[in-house]
């Protein structure tokens, strides 16, 4: 009996599945099943587990009727673009600098820049409230260096997204440096040596060697940033203690989904919004892949 089981398990065709089983089980139960359930819920009037009825596309109609949906979508898109504009170039440059060997104590800097990723966001939220306060550190810094009049960061709708992007920069720069760094390590050093012999300037080397060869890493970071940007939830939730900030200037899609589900108790509409959000992220990722030539055969 036991030997026959062992024989099956030891079969070369079966073994991979045996090893994959624990992961697949967890993946199916905690990832695939909720996704399928959310899609199903988005077509139902979901009020309690007992009373579900099929309502067709009503939930999707409700989403587009919601006054805040457009605002949340715009906010989230602006936030995502903002994070992309900062969180790709900045970590890239920092990673190249740290990798160049011209920075003393580069390991120390790397650790320091990575620290925010390990910090509790609840603590960070409180600290950032104090930094962003009218008489806080940021205003002090801006007025002493650039002579800018104190801004009411926490009380002005138009300053909500810049505040959130600031927190995102603080939080994600270190992690993105880590990604770029692993990409940099894989670039053969001979290329640089050859370039030096050919008389290339550091900028030329960066532009013609580093950037092109970092393309897979950059694509990876860009896609991750888009997904992260569109899913932003914790930052506004913590900074504005559960809300979207002044005038809902910091309202994100995920925050609106949460509000629809847990304040309005409308799980169907919330699920529909989740499906729409997933579709948006999917489309953007596809465009990215095309843009970076993942589907073409040249690589």
């Amino acid at each position: 009996m036991l030997s026959s089981i062992l024989r099956i398990v030891h079969n070369k065709k079966v073994v991979p599945f045996v090893f994959l089983a624990p992961f697949m089980t967890i993946f199916l139960i905690f990832k695939v099943y909720p996704v399928i359930l959310a899609v199903i819920m988005s077509f139902q009037n979901f009020q309690g587990v007992q009373s579900q009825e099929w309502v067709g596309l009503t939930n999707y109609q409700n989403v587009f009727n919601l006054v805040r949906f457009g605002q949340a979508l715009t906010n989230t898109t602006v936030y995502t673009i903002g994070t992309l504009l900062i969180l790709i170039p900045l970590p890239l440059i920092l990673a190249v600098l740290l990798d160049s060997g011209r920075v003393a104590q580069s390991t120390l800097f790397r650790t320091l820049i990575f620290l925010p990723a390990l910090t509790s966001l609840v603590v960070a939220g409180t600290v950032f409230r104090l930094i962003l306060a009218e008489e806080g550190f940021l205003n002090l810094f801006l007025s002493s260096t650039l002579g800018i009049r104190p801004l009411r960061w926490l009380e002005t709708a138009d300053l909500a997204l810049p505040s959130l992007i600031l927190i995102a920069t603080w939080r994600w720069t270190g992690i993105n440096i880590l990604y770029f760094n692993s990409g940099l390590v894989n670039i053969p050093r001979e290329l640089y040596e050859a370039a030096v012999i050919d008389g290339a300037s550091p900028f030329q080397m960066f532009w013609r060697i580093t950037l092109p060869l970092l393309r897979p890493t950059t694509l990876f970071v860009v896609v991750l940033s888009i997904i992260g940007g569109y899913q932003v939830f914790v930052e506004p939730f913590i900074l504005y203690t559960g809300g979207g900030g002044p005038g809902d200037g910091g309202l994100s899609m995920a925050l609106l989904i949460y509000r629809t589900a847990f304040t309005s108790f409308n799980f169907g509409t919330a699920a529909a919004m989740g499906v729409i959000l997933a579709a948006i992220i999917f489309v953007f990722s596809l465009i990215q892949f095309r843009f970076f030539g993942v589907f073409s055969k040249e690589d």
């Binding site: 409230r129 306060a133 926490l154 009380e155």
Partner: peptide, 9 residues
């Protein structure tokens, strides 16, 4: 300041 009566500022 901070929008509410429970704001630290």
């Amino acid at each position: 300041s901070g929008g509410g009566h429970h704001s630290p500022d």
